[in-house]
């Protein structure tokens, strides 16, 4: 059953959700919107295009503590850090980002080795997807339609939300979402007209065009394999690249991390911290050898991983076309253009 509320009453909905667990939702910050845990329901803000940082940190935080120890003490005294898992509502996720969770699941749970931190957080979360507005043109950096993702795809969400002017329509997608929606007193029942609008928007979202190029997984995987030794191609497309970590840190489908021991006085913590294949020392070996000393080798890795190795190993392309890497690249390198050029090469 389709439910509704108004944008004005968003904070009532937020307050209701906070009773169910931790609420993580978009809030306005200095450089744009980001997902944060909400303490004041009025802070939830749905007036955003997409968040600056991806929501991956909700399940895969930038820093995750595993073990605490004292330096010099016996290993028997080291303690495992129990992850802080609470029922969570992740609110206002765009369809391309919802899709990214499915891709990330492959790595954190789908390969046979289950990462309990990711898995438990995923399980404890109820996801409220939120459609892009099909009446507003897509950001020029976006290209999710290339990856077969609609602007209003409810799949993957537990509850899916579509904005209709000042109304917010909410449709349960999973039983988990159904249950949660039925427990929220601030929602009213939507009309038949609302339902028509909702279904119409989902359908319109499927033909909504962002930048578009036709990418099929198998041919593009092959293309990048063929291009691997074409240093001239890679040198050209990476000429401007600074080899920083901005693109990978904002990306919802980048999942590389490092395990670090960090100590303050004698108190040590073993933790995992996001890492980036664009960093010079990412592949630095203990011997001092570094198989990827050149910028083009690192950019080749980043793009081939998403558009070739990932397809070969797991099936899907590991990119959802959210455009964050392009929007945040200090020198405007655009992964879409590189993929496009590769197809023509």
């Amino acid at each position: 059953m389709l439910k509704k509320t108004t944008v004005q009453k968003l904070s009532d909905l937020a307050a209701g959700l906070m009773e169910k667990g931790a609420l993580i939702a978009p809030v306005r910050e200095e450089a744009g919107h980001n997902f944060r845990e909400i303490s004041d329901p009025a802070a939830v803000d749905l007036d955003f295009y997409n968040t600056l940082l991806s929501p991956k940190s909700v399940f895969f935080p930038h820093t995750e503590d595993f073990i605490r120890y004292k330096t010099g003490a016996s290993i028997a005294e080291a303690v495992c850090v129990e992850p802080d898992i609470r029922p969570t509502v992740l609110f206002g996720v765009r369809p391309c980002d919802v899709k990214s969770f499915e891709i990330m699941d492959i790595h954190f749970t789908g390969t046979g080795k289950v990462d309990p931190y990711w898995a438990k957080r995923r399980e404890a979360a109820t996801i409220f997807g939120y459609a892009f507005d099909p009446n507003t043109p897509a950001d020029p950096a976006d290209f999710y339609s290339t990856l077969g993702i609609g602007a209003a795809d409810p799949e993957g969400s537990d509850v899916f939300m579509i904005r209709k002017d000042q109304d917010l329509l909410l449709q349960a997608v999973s039983p988990k979402g159904e249950k949660l929606l039925s427990e929220l007193p601030s929602l009213s029942d939507a009309s038949a007209d609302d339902q028509k609008y909702f279904d119409g928007t989902v359908a319109a979202g499927r033909t909504f065009k962002t930048r578009f190029t036709c990418v099929e997984a198998e041919p593009i995987a092959k293309k990048f394999e063929d291009l691997f030794h074409n240093a001239a191609f890679w040198e050209k497309v990476s000429e401007a690249c600074l080899s920083c970590g901005a693109c990978t840190f904002v990306c919802p489908t980048c999942y590389c991390f490092d395990i670090c021991d960090e100590t303050l006085f004698s108190q040590g913590t073993r933790r995992r911290v996001w890492d980036s294949c664009m960093f010079t020392d990412f592949t630095l070996e203990a011997s001092g050898h570094n198989p990827r000393t050149k910028v083009y080798q690192r950019l080749r890795q980043k793009i081939s991983h998403k558009y070739s190795y990932h397809i070969r190993k797991y099936g899907p392309i590991s990119c959802v076309g959210c455009g964050r890497c392009t929007r945040n690249c200090p020198v405007n390198i655009d992964i879409f253009s590189i993929v496009n050029e590769a197809m023509k090469a």
């Binding site: 600074l242 080899s243 920083c244 970590g245 840190f249 200090p330």
Partner: peptide, 12 residues
């Protein structure tokens, strides 16, 4: 505290 340590600043 808001820094995400992407090192774009030093690289640029």
């Amino acid at each position: 505290d808001r820094c995400i340590r992407c090192y774009a600043c030093r690289k640029a």
